[in-house]
Design a protein around this nucleic acid. Structure first.
Lengths: 207, 207
DNA sequence: GCCGAAGGTGAGCGGTCGCTTAGCGCGCCT
DNA sequence: AGGCGCGCTAAGCGACCGCTCACCTTCGGC
């Protein structure tokens, strides 16, 4: 909640970059459908229906159903990486930057839960070459968080024995928010972000 | 690794309770297939094929494909709950019991990753009544961990502001192991269990 | 030695899937 | 004014889905 450690990161819905309008409507419809039922349980007829179009309209803007998932995953990972980079590269101590990174990353996973769910849990539905591209982005995500933790250790702020393992745990904690968070639940994304930032600072020995 | 905080919990593959033999082979085949490709992407022909049988044989032992998932989910949740109960009800301080619970729970998610994956991530594929039964088991899982944390707070061992939120985070951290763990990775289930037990003790202010 | 139950197979039914194709309406450019 | 191309639809193709059915084999009990 403390205003000093908040990074707004601008727009959290990145779909406006998708044009034309019909292609964007199909993409948003696909995100909703994939998040609700999973990629394999979603039909192209359902996606087109949600976008107010006939089933064939989908293939004017996308070659296959998998290309839809690929585009969503790519845009979502770009956004996630952007959020972490913004937090990692601001000024402040390693503890402040880590708290900011966790807080904003968690807020995105909670607030944009449908997008995050598709991005984080439907990776296996991608073909080999598309998956490889996304995996490379995930490595950059990992490196960004590991960099903050290494900075904290080097500065004597953190007490961490296993940097790679702790990085994995921190990211894992944030990502799993997309699995359990519900808008009907008792917590706001901001509250979860603040709680998780505190828990992570304890994990690295800066609490 | 410290032997004092290990709870073996006996057999970690609980499928031997399933009879007859053909029904068990089908169940194990379904676990593998669901874990690899997800419930909706798995065909009954694939399951029967892995078990060395014709597609029709599946319906001698199970009414539908969903009943297979239901049975797997039920047995898996029973096992997970059993692991946590064993740790929660042993003798020792709250810190010892929490470390034991996290360590054994994580070891199960890493060591029996295929089972854990189906149990933790295919819940939405169940119908309403089957899902309700499983959700009730999950509430018991949550209560078991929360009980240990409440004990630690009451005994002055832990420093936790938000008990429910911290419980959620602890379980979330453990469960997500099933998403990222690979047998090809650099860590053994025992190593991850020990690391995570340490991180969780830090989270509750007992590190 | 025959019988019925239990456990298995091959073929296939109705339905739905991802995706394609032929053609239609409607703005835009000359 | 007229033709052209873009965005879209209706219809449907071939494949594959979950599941069923008629039939076959094996085997213990009397």
């Amino acid at each position: 909640m403390s205003a000093a450690q908040e990074t707004t990161g601008g727009e959290m819905e990145p779909w406006e970059q998708v044009t034309p309008d019909a292609a964007r409507r199909l993409l948003v419809a696909a995100v909703e459908a994939f998040a609700e039922r999973g990629y394999h349980a979603t039909t192209t007829r359902d996606i087109a229906g949600r976008a107010g179009m006939s089933p064939a309209a989908l293939y004017i803007h996308y070659k296959t159903k998998e290309e839809l998932l690929h585009r969503i995953s790519r845009i979502g990972h770009d956004k996630a990486l952007d959020i972490l980079r913004t937090a990692a590269r601001r000024e402040g101590t390693a503890a402040e930057r880590l708290a900011d990174a966790v807080s904003s990353f968690v807020r995105w996973h909670a607030g944009r839960r449908t997008t995050a769910r598709v991005v984080q849990y439907e990776l296996d539905a991608l073909g080999p070459e598309a998956r490889a591209e996304i995996v490379a982005l995930r490595r950059q995500v990992d490196a960004e968080v590991r960099g903050i933790i290494e900075d904290g250790v080097a500065a004597g702020e953190f007490d961490v024995l296993d940097v790679r393992g702790t990085t994995l745990a921190v990211l894992s904690l944030c990502i799993d928010v997309a699995r359990w968070f519900t808008v009907n639940g008792p917590r706001t994304p901001e509250e979860v972000g603040a709680l998780y930032a505190d828990l992570v600072l304890r994990m690295v020995g800066a609490g």
